[in-house]
Design a protein around this nucleic acid. Structure first.
Lengths: 114, 114
DNA sequence: ATATTATACCTAGAAACCCGAGGTATGTCA
DNA sequence: TGACATACCTCGGGTTTCTAGGTATAATAT
């Protein structure tokens, strides 16, 4: 985590749901994609991701199923449900509101000198 | 807090430093200004703000002094130091990196339908 | 006069969130 | 066959914020 790790707070679930909205994915893959898509800003830890996935499954936001990889290994894929998609929409709007509010406060500050 | 409260995580210090970069302020005032500037998205609690101010003072990022209000009441004002301004710059850049990374991940998602 | 409300500061304990560090197991490659 | 990458998992602890209280003064209402 390059950025202050605590900045991740509260957005981990949003990021996971976002990743799953495109296609079903398995845990290890999500970590790699997050790292790539965020240009290495996010390195979500396994100790963070797996509990989130289990919680989402308990809530009915995702469903898991096992599937063999081409290599023969078994992977656990996660599929986002309709409920999960609604949750994603909610969390996206929360994120938008939140980030705009932060930017509004920062706008009253001396500009960042690059 | 309208937005998911956990989204506030990690940014509280940034917001406080940002408020103080304009002029010296006292605690109660900061809470009111945050609420106003963020259009009621942030309602920072006293139990959150005061410990943050005390920590920042211990770190030398702010300095406090007492001053009587026109009413006669004593208020505790906080002044941001050079060290605090440097911290603010750092945290602003972290915020920018972070929010851009979140947006990059969200960009790969089905758009939010308003 | 006096009760209530707003202002203004503070802290202790609990809750939420994430990470570090470990564990287990399988497939690949030297 | 030993090392490494893949792939899953959990427990304990640290950090951060909130809840819920406390104290005190000034203004306002009764």
């Amino acid at each position: 985590m390059k950025a202050d790790k605590s900045l991740l707070s509260g957005s981990a679930t949003l990021l996971v749901l976002s990743l799953l909205s495109g296609e079903d994915k398995y845990g290890y893959q999500m970590i790699a994609e997050l790292e790539a898509k965020s240009d290495h800003t996010f390195s979500m830890k396994e100790g963070t991701l797996y509990p989130i996935l289990h919680t989402l499954e308990k809530e009915g936001a995702v469903q898991s199923y096992e599937k063999a990889a081409p290599t023969g290994r078994t992977r656990k894929y996660y599929h986002i449900t309709k409920k999960g998609l609604r949750l994603l929409d909610t969390k996206k709007e929360e994120w938008t509101t939140f980030s705009q509010a932060v930017n509004a406060v920062l706008a009253g500050t001396t500009p960042v000198m690059a």
